[in-house]
């Protein structure tokens, strides 16, 4: 699991790659907390187009990132989930809490 970032005009985009499981989520959350602290973005995009695998630990991570963003008065959403990660998102019903865009906005 690796995270690539791009920052632009209040937008912070996190591109998740590889596999996001409980092992990866432990360090990913710390990394993301640091990135949010530094950038203090108004909008945070989690791009999953390069993510090959995710389980419920990824769901918990997305929920936490989204909560963290509302704490600082911002918004977070998910873009471009494909294949297995998309099926996990659907099975979890997370789209009732965090917006999921199957195509980039």
């Amino acid at each position: 699991m690796k995270i690539y970032t791009a920052e632009n005009d209040g937008f912070l985009k996190l591109s998740f790659t590889g596999e996001l499981d409980h092992h990866g989520a432990k360090t990913a959350m710390k990394t993301i907390d640091g990135l949010i602290d530094d950038a203090l973005p108004r909008n945070l995009i989690m791009d999953l187009s390069e993510l090959n695998f995710m389980d419920s630990s990824g769901i918990a991570l997305i929920l936490r990132v989204s909560r963290r963003m509302s704490d600082i008065g911002g918004k977070a959403w998910v873009e471009n989930p494909l294949g297995q990660p998309l099926r996990v998102l659907n099975a979890s019903g997370i789209d009732r809490v965090v917006k999921v865009f199957e195509k980039a906005r």
Binding site: A25, D55, S56, S57, I59, A60, L63, R64, R87, V88, A91, S92, G93, I94
Partner: peptide, 22 residues
């Protein structure tokens, strides 16, 4: 049950639900 967890903030309580759906 969906969303039942004893794991707090780090967990979503969706593990069994995902196993059942997959």
């Amino acid at each position: 049950e969906p969303m039942y967890t004893t794991g707090g903030d780090d967990r979503s309580g969706m593990g069994f639900t995902i196993m059942e759906s997959f």
